[in-house]
Design a protein around this nucleic acid. Structure first.
Lengths: 250, 250
DNA sequence: CGTAGACTTGACGGCACTCAAACAAGGTGG
DNA sequence: CCACCTTGTTTGAGTGCCGTCAAGTCTACG
C-alpha cells in the first residue's frame, strides 16, 4: 500500500494525463500503473534549482504547478533557457535514458512537483509498451518545441520571437486545462524571457512595449492576455501544428 | 525470407549499430530483429527532399551515407536548418509517434538510405523493451544536440557558433567510424551552414575566413580539418558531454 | 569555352547590445 | 508607519555585430 509514500491526491496528476490523452487515449490499467509510482508531492520556491547540470538523477520530475525552465550557463555567466515547462510536463524525463543531465532545471515560479524512480520507469517500459511509447512521445513533443524555438532564434526578429512565445504558452497551458489560448497565468520576469529568447533584458523590454503599443499584448503582474489573437499569430507566423494537439493512435 | 526486399548487405547498418552501441550494448537478438526490418537501400542526389513538411510518412528513414538536414521554411523563403544528420542517424524517427512531420528533410549531399515501416517499429516496441528504449534514446540524443544548438543561436557569437559546429560534426562522424574528430568529410556549402547557424551566407564566409586566419580551420573542397583542436574547442566553449558518448546500462 | 553555382570582397545600414541611470513595487526592520 | 533595500521594469545614448545589396572571382562541368 503506497499511501504514505504516494501522492496525497491522485487528482494532482490531472494535467499530466490530460497532456498525454490530448494525443492518445490511455487505458485504465496504464493510468493506474503510472499513478501508483509517483512519490509524495513537494514544493520549491522560485529560483530554486531542481536538478543541476552534470547530475545523474535517479528519478524524473513531473511538474504539478508553476513554471520551470531548462537552462544552460555559459562561461561568462550568460544563461540560455532552452525550454519552459508547464504543469503536466516531465522536466527531465530524458534523464531516464540519457543518465547525465547536460543542463539544469530551475523553478521560475514557486512550484509543486512529484517524482518517479527511473527503476520504476524501466519496469513500466517492460510491461506496458503503449504507455512506454506515450512517455517517449512526451519527450518528442518537447523536441518539436525545441525545433520551433531554434527557428525563432535563427530566423525570427525579436518582435516575432516574443509574439511566438506568447502564442505557444497560451496553447500549451490551455492543453492542460490552465487558462485559454489568449488569457493565462505566466509569472516569468522579462529577464527570464530574455534568456529564453537569446536577447538582452533591455531589448526584451522594448519589444514587449512594442507589442503593447500594437495592442497585441496585455501583460500586467503575472497575467497575459492577447486581445488580438489572429493579429499576434500573424506577426509571429504562428502555426500550431508543431504542438501536435491531435489525438492519434500512437 | 527477406532477400529481395531487405538490405543487400547487412554491413550497411554498421554506422547505425555503432551509434547505438556506443551508448549501450545490444543483444544479438535485438540486432537481428532490427536488421531484418530494413528495406532495400535507395539513393538520392544532393538537394532532393526525403520527406516534406506536413507529410505523414508510414516509415522512418535511416541514413546510410551522406549528410541530410532538417529544415523549416519561413514565409519569406528563408530557411532554418534545425539539425544535420550523419550516417547511422534516423532522420525522422520521431514521425513514428508524432505522425505528422513539422519540417522537411533534405539531402545536403548525395545520400544512401534505407527505411523501416512504422508498423514494424511498433512490433519492435511490443517485443523488445530494451531495444525500444534504445530507439527512444536515439531521439533523445538528437534533442540534446538541439538544445546545444539553441544555446549557440541564443548566446554564442557567430565565430564561436561556427567553431562549435565543426567540433560537433567531427565527434559525431567519428562516433560512427567516419573520420576523426579533427579531420573529416563535410560536403556542405557555406549557404547550408548559414541556414543552420541562423546567419547570412556572407557573414558565414567572413567567419570561416576568420577561423582560417586563426589557424583553427582548414576547409577545402569537402574536407574539414582542425589543426588546433584544443584551440577551436576553447573558442567554442565546446564540452562534448551533451553528445552522450559514454556506454551505460539504459 | 561558356555557364552555373559557390565563394569572396566592399560599402553601408539597422537591429540589438552595453552602459548607466531612474522609476516602481513589494518586503523588512527599526 | 515609514525608511530602506531589493528586484523588476523603463528610458536614453552610443556602439557594434551582422544584414543587405552589389560586384567580382573561382571552379567544376558540359
Amino acid at each position: 500500500m503506497m499511501t504514505a509514500q504516494g501522492l496525497s491526491d491522485p487528482a494532482l496528476l490531472q494535467t499530466f494525463f490530460q497532456r498525454l490523452e490530448r494525443r492518445d487515449e490511455l487505458g485504465p490499467d496504464e493510468r493506474r500503473a503510472m499513478a501508483e509510482l509517483f512519490r509524495h508531492e513537494r514544493r520549491l520556491e522560485a529560483g530554486a534549482e531542481i536538478v543541476g547540470e552534470g547530475e545523474r538523477p535517479g528519478q524524473s520530475t513531473l511538474l504539478l504547478s508553476g513554471i520551470t525552465a531548462r537552462a544552460k550557463l555559459m562561461g561568462d555567466g550568460e544563461r540560455q533557457i532552452t525550454a519552459f515547462n508547464v504543469p503536466g510536463d516531465f522536466v527531465d524525463l530524458h534523464s531516464f535514458l540519457l543518465k547525465e543531465l547536460d543542463h539544469s532545471v530551475v523553478a521560475i515560479t514557486p512550484i509543486e512537483f512529484t517524482q518517479i524512480a527511473h527503476a520504476d520507469l524501466e519496469r513500466v517500459t517492460e510491461r506496458f509498451p503503449h504507455l512506454s511509447r506515450m512517455l517517449w512521445l512526451a519527450t518528442l513533443l518537447d523536441s518539436a518545441i525545441n525545433r520551433e524555438w531554434l527557428v525563432g532564434l535563427g530566423r525570427r526578429s525579436a518582435l516575432a520571437r516574443a509574439a511566438h512565445i506568447f502564442c505557444e504558452m497560451g496553447l500549451r497551458l490551455n492543453a492542460v486545462g490552465l487558462g485559454s489560448p489568449d488569457n493565462y497565468e505566466f509569472a516569468v520576469t522579462q529577464t527570464d524571457l530574455a534568456d529564453a529568447m537569446g536577447l538582452s533584458a533591455v531589448h526584451v523590454n522594448r519589444v514587449i512595449q512594442d507589442l503593447r503599443a500594437r495592442n497585441l499584448l496585455v501583460w500586467q503582474g503575472s497575467r497575459v492576455s492577447l486581445p488580438n489573437l489572429d493579429g499576434i499569430r500573424e506577426l509571429a507566423e504562428f502555426d500550431d501544428r508543431y504542438l501536435n494537439l491531435m489525438k492519434e493512435r500512437r
